[in-house]
Amino acid sequence: ENLWTTASTFIVLFLLSLFYSTTVTLFKVK
């Protein structure tokens, strides 16, 4: 379960960073 928890945390952080960079890009375009 420890490995699954680590993987889940990594996926969440990846999605958050992806969402953040997408938002920054949209604001830069405007």
Rank of each mutant, 00 (worst) to 15 (best):
E1W: 08
E1V: 08
E1H: 11
E1P: 05
E1D: 11
E1R: 06
E1Q: 09
E1F: 08
E1S: 09
N2I: 08
N2S: 14
N2C: 11
N2A: 15
N2Y: 12
N2W: 09
N2F: 10
L3S: 15
L3G: 13
L3A: 14
L3F: 05
L3H: 06
L3K: 07
L3D: 15
L3W: 07
L3M: 14
W4D: 14
W4M: 10
W4A: 14
W4K: 09
W4C: 09
W4T: 12
W4P: 12
T5D: 13
T5A: 15
T5G: 11
T5N: 12
T5S: 13
T5P: 08
T5E: 10
T5I: 15
T6N: 05
T6Y: 05
T6M: 12
T6Q: 09
T6D: 06
T6K: 03
T6H: 04
T6W: 04
T6A: 10
T6L: 15
T6S: 07
A7V: 07
A7P: 06
A7C: 14
A7H: 07
A7Q: 10
A7G: 08
A7S: 12
S8W: 13
S8I: 15
S8Y: 14
S8G: 13
S8N: 13
S8T: 15
S8L: 15
S8H: 15
S8Q: 15
S8M: 13
S8E: 14
S8D: 10
T9Q: 02
T9Y: 06
T9M: 10
T9S: 09
T9K: 02
T9L: 12
T9V: 14
T9P: 01
T9D: 02
T9N: 06
T9W: 09
T9R: 03
F10K: 04
F10W: 08
F10C: 08
F10P: 01
F10I: 05
F10E: 05
F10N: 00
F10Q: 03
F10H: 00
F10T: 06
F10M: 07
F10S: 09
F10L: 05
F10D: 02
F10Y: 12
F10V: 07
I11Q: 10
I11G: 07
I11P: 04
I11L: 09
I11T: 07
I11E: 00
I11Y: 06
I11K: 04
I11F: 12
V12R: 00
V12H: 04
V12D: 00
V12S: 07
V12F: 13
V12P: 05
V12T: 10
V12G: 11
V12N: 01
V12M: 05
V12I: 13
V12E: 01
L13I: 02
L13M: 07
L13Y: 05
L13R: 01
L13G: 04
L13A: 05
L13F: 02
L13C: 08
F14A: 00
F14I: 03
F14C: 01
F14M: 00
F14Y: 12
F14D: 02
F14E: 00
F14K: 03
L15D: 03
L15W: 10
L15N: 09
L15T: 13
L15A: 08
L16Y: 07
L16S: 05
L16Q: 03
L16F: 09
L16T: 05
L16I: 14
L16N: 04
L16W: 04
L16H: 05
S17N: 06
S17M: 15
S17A: 13
S17T: 10
S17D: 01
S17I: 11
S17Y: 04
S17C: 12
S17P: 00
S17Q: 07
L18K: 04
L18A: 08
L18G: 01
L18F: 06
L18E: 02
L18Q: 00
L18I: 14
L18C: 15
L18R: 00
L18W: 05
F19Q: 02
F19N: 02
F19R: 02
F19T: 13
F19C: 11
F19E: 02
F19M: 15
F19L: 13
F19H: 05
F19W: 10
F19G: 10
Y20A: 04
Y20M: 02
Y20T: 04
Y20L: 04
Y20G: 05
Y20V: 05
Y20R: 00
Y20I: 03
S21Y: 05
S21R: 01
S21D: 01
S21F: 03
S21P: 04
S21H: 02
S21Q: 00
S21N: 06
S21K: 02
S21I: 06
S21M: 01
T22M: 15
T22P: 03
T22L: 15
T22V: 15
T22D: 00
T22F: 15
T22N: 02
T23Q: 03
T23P: 02
T23N: 05
T23L: 14
T23K: 03
T23D: 00
T23S: 11
T23W: 09
T23F: 13
T23M: 14
V24R: 02
V24W: 00
V24D: 01
V24S: 00
V24M: 08
V24T: 05
V24G: 00
V24F: 05
T25A: 09
T25K: 02
T25L: 12
T25N: 03
T25V: 12
T25W: 06
T25C: 08
T25G: 00
T25I: 12
T25F: 08
T25E: 01
L26Y: 11
L26E: 00
L26Q: 02
L26F: 14
L26G: 04
L26H: 05
L26S: 04
L26W: 13
L26D: 00
L26T: 06
L26M: 11
F27D: 02
F27M: 15
F27H: 06
F27P: 01
F27Q: 05
F27N: 02
F27A: 08
F27K: 05
F27I: 12
F27E: 05
F27G: 04
F27W: 11
K28H: 07
K28S: 06
K28Y: 08
K28C: 08
K28Q: 07
K28F: 10
V29Y: 07
V29G: 06
V29H: 09
V29Q: 09
V29T: 10
V29I: 13
V29E: 03
V29R: 08
V29K: 06
V29N: 07
V29W: 09
V29A: 08
V29M: 12
V29S: 09
K30A: 09
K30S: 09
K30V: 12
K30D: 07
K30I: 10
K30M: 10
K30C: 09
